[in-house]
Design a protein around this nucleic acid. Structure first.
Lengths: 341, 341
DNA sequence: CTGTTAGCGCCTTCAA
DNA sequence: TTGAAGGCGCTAACAG
C-alpha cells in the first residue's frame, strides 16, 4: 500500500497539518520537526498524490497561449488545436486561454507578455520572436515564477523553461538530403523560398539545407533566398519571376509557411520539366499539391502534438514534476503522397 | 462554477446516493427517478470529475501487456518502454505488468490471453498473431468486458477495441516511393527481406511496397521475397546469397525486424556499386548503419509512443471516455542520417 | 427503491 | 509552533 500523509504523520509523531506544511514548504515548523517529517517521508518513500492534492485545493491550472494573428494555414491550425484543448480543458482542471498579437511585432509581443504576467497564470506558451526585448520580457515572466515555454520558434538563450517544436536545423538538413537524392546527384539549380530571415526557425532551416547541399551535393547551386513574408501574393510573384529568370531550375525548397502562392505559381508556369518541390507544413493546400504531384515532399510539425505537449510540460512545471523528454520531443514528419494520413 | 453531484441531487430532489446510482448505471432506481436525475444532469451540463471518482474508489487500473519474447532490438525496446511505464505507473494509479509469450506461437498467445482474463485486469494490450484461434481468444476477452488493444501488429476483424501501431500498407508504400526516387527511376533490381509472411504487418508492408513499385516505378524488378524470420544469422546468409546470385541488385528493402544480419552481410560483401538500402525500426544497429551510410533510410514506429498511447487508450476505454483520435495515431517516422534524433 | 454517513488523500481555516 | 476539524467531488456500505 502506498504511504499517505497519515502514515508519515504517524511515523513522525506529528499531525497532518504539520506534514502538509513540510510537504508544501510552508513556514511555521521548527527545524527539528521538519527534519523528523522529512526523515519519515524519505524512509517510507512517500510520493504525494497530485490528483488528491488538486482536488483538495480545487485547483485549476490557468494557462495562456500567446499566438500571432497570422493568416497562414499553419498558424490558424495551431489556434484551432489550442481551441480544441480549451474545449477539453474543463475536464482536466484547466482554464486555457488565447491572447492574439500582431505577427512579426516584437513590441506587441513584449506588451502581451507583460500583461499576461499580471494575471499570474500557472503557465505561458508563446511563439517567440528573436529580439533582445522579447528575451528580457521572458526573463521577467520567469522571475515572477511563472513557467513559460516557447512554441514553434525558440529563443534559446532566454529564460524559457522549455521549447516545444522541431529541430529546425535538422529539418533543413533533411530537406537538403531529400532534394539532393531526388535530383539524382548531378548538377542542378535550386531556388529557396522563405518567409523572413528575421525569424529563427526559417534561418535555421536554411542553414541546415545549405550545409547538406554544400557537403553532400556540391553539384547543386542555390539561388539567392527569396523572402515571401508568408504572403501568398508576394510569394507567387517571386516564384513566377525566379522561374522566368532561371528556366533551368530543377528544385524548389519552400521553408516558410504560406505555400498557397508557391503552388499557384507552379500551376501557372508551364515548365518543360517539372521542378522537384519540397515544402513545410501539411495544410489543405500542401496536401492537395502533394496528392496531385505538384509538391514532392512535405516536412511537417504536428500542431496538435505541439499544443498537447506544451500543456503537459506547463502542467509538469507548475507541479514541479519532471517531463518525459522522449515524449515531448516534437518530431519532423516527412510526408510523401504515399504516407499522407 | 462547475456543477457537482450535490447540485444535481438538489436540482432533482434526490440524495447523493441516487445520483451516484444513475451516474454509474447501477440498479435500484425507479424509472421516473432515474429520468429526473438524467434531466438534471443534462440541464446543468454536469460532467463527472474522474479524478475525484478515482480517489473515492481508490481505484488502480491494472493493465497487462502480453509481449513476445523476441530477442530483436525492437521488441526489447518495446519491453523497455513498458517497464518505463511501470516505473511511473504508481503515480498514475496504475499497475502495469508484462506477460511474456514465446514468439510466433499462436497457441501460447491464446493461453496467455485466457489466463489473463481470469485476473480481470482493467485492460490488455498484446502483439497480435493473425490466426482464427487468437481471434476467438480476443473475442472471449472482449466478452468478459475487458478492454483490449492490439499493439504493433493488428487483427482487424477481431473484437479488439483499438489498434496501436502504424499503417503498414502506407509504410510499405513510402518505402517503395523512396526506393524508386532514390534509384532515379530507371531499370533496376530490388531485393526484399522480410521476417515472416505469416505476420500481418510484414505482409502489409510488402503489399504497399509492391503496389507503388508496380504503379510508379515499373522499371524496378522485385526479386522473390526472402524470409529471414528476424534471425540475424539466417538473414545474413540469405542476403549474402542473394547478392552473390544477383550482382546487379541496386536496392534492398528490409521490412522486418532483426537487421543485424542484413547489416553484417552488407559490410562483408564488396559491391562495385553500393545498393540503396531501406529498413524498418530505428535501433542501435540501424542507427549506426544509417550514420555510416550502409543504410539510406529507416522507417520507424516509436515504441515509447505506442506504449503510452496503448495505456491512454486502455484507460479511456476503462473509464468509458472517448479517445482523441489524432493524438493516438502512430506515425511513420522517416529517418535519414540528417534527421536522426 | 432511497437516503445517511463515512471515507479516498490532501489542504486549509481556526484554535490552542 | 502545532493540532483538530471540516471539506474538495465522488463512491460505498448500511440502514430504512
Amino acid at each position: 500500500m502506498k504511504p499517505t500523509v497519515h502514515d508519515i504523520a504517524r511515523s513522525a509523531g506529528v499531525s497532518l497539518a504539520t506534514v502538509d506544511r513540510v510537504l508544501n514548504g510552508r513556514p511555521g515548523v521548527r527545524r527539528v520537526t521538519r527534519q523528523r517529517v522529512e526523515g519519515a517521508i524519505a524512509e517510507l518513500g512517500y510520493v504525494r498524490d497530485v490528483a488528491a492534492a488538486n482536488l483538495a485545493k480545487s485547483r485549476t491550472y490557468a494557462f495562456t497561449f500567446i499566438l500571432p494573428a497570422n493568416d497562414n494555414s499553419f498558424m490558424i491550425g495551431l489556434g484551432d488545436e489550442v481551441r480544441g484543448a480549451i474545449a477539453r480543458s474543463s475536464l482536466e482542471r484547466m482554464a486555457v486561454r488565447i491572447v492574439n498579437v500582431p505577427p512579426f511585432d516584437p513590441a506587441a509581443l513584449v506588451a502581451a507578455l507583460d500583461t499576461v504576467v499580471l494575471e499570474r497564470p500557472a503557465g505561458v506558451a508563446f511563439v517567440a520572436i528573436d529580439t533582445p526585448d522579447v528575451r528580457a520580457a521572458v526573463q521577467r515572466v520567469a522571475a515572477a515564477g511563472i513557467p513559460i515555454v516557447t512554441l514553434v520558434s525558440d529563443l534559446p538563450e532566454a529564460a524559457r523553461d522549455h521549447y516545444v517544436g522541431i529541430d529546425n536545423i535538422a529539418a533543413g538538413r533533411t530537406a537538403g538530403s531529400l532534394m539532393g537524392r531526388f535530383l539524382g546527384g548531378g548538377d542542378a539549380t535550386v531556388a529557396v523560398l522563405s518567409g523572413s530571415m528575421l525569424v529563427r526557425d526559417h534561418r535555421e532551416r536554411l542553414e541546415g539545407f545549405a550545409t547538406v547541399v554544400r557537403e553532400q551535393f556540391p553539384g547543386l547551386a542555390i539561388l539567392p533566398v527569396l523572402e515571401g513574408r508568408d504572403d501568398p501574393a508576394l510569394a507567387e510573384a517571386l516564384v513566377m519571376q525566379v522561374l522566368e529568370d532561371n528556366p533551368q531550375i530543377a528544385g524548389i525548397y519552400s521553408l516558410g509557411a504560406g505555400n498557397r502562392g508557391l503552388i499557384q505559381a507552379l500551376r501557372k508556369v508551364s515548365m518543360t520539366r517539372r521542378a522537384m518541390v519540397i515544402a513545410h507544413e501539411l495544410t489543405a493546400y500542401t496536401r492537395a499539391a502533394l496528392a496531385d504531384g505538384t509538391i514532392d515532399a512535405v516536412l511537417n510539425q504536428d500542431a496538435g502534438h505541439e499544443v498537447r505537449s506544451a500543456i503537459r510540460v506547463l502542467k509538469a512545471k507548475a507541479d514541479g514534476l519532471p517531463v518525459i523528454a522522449a515524449q515531448e520531443r516534437i518530431r519532423i514528419d516527412i510526408f510523401l503522397k504515399d504516407n499522407l494520413p
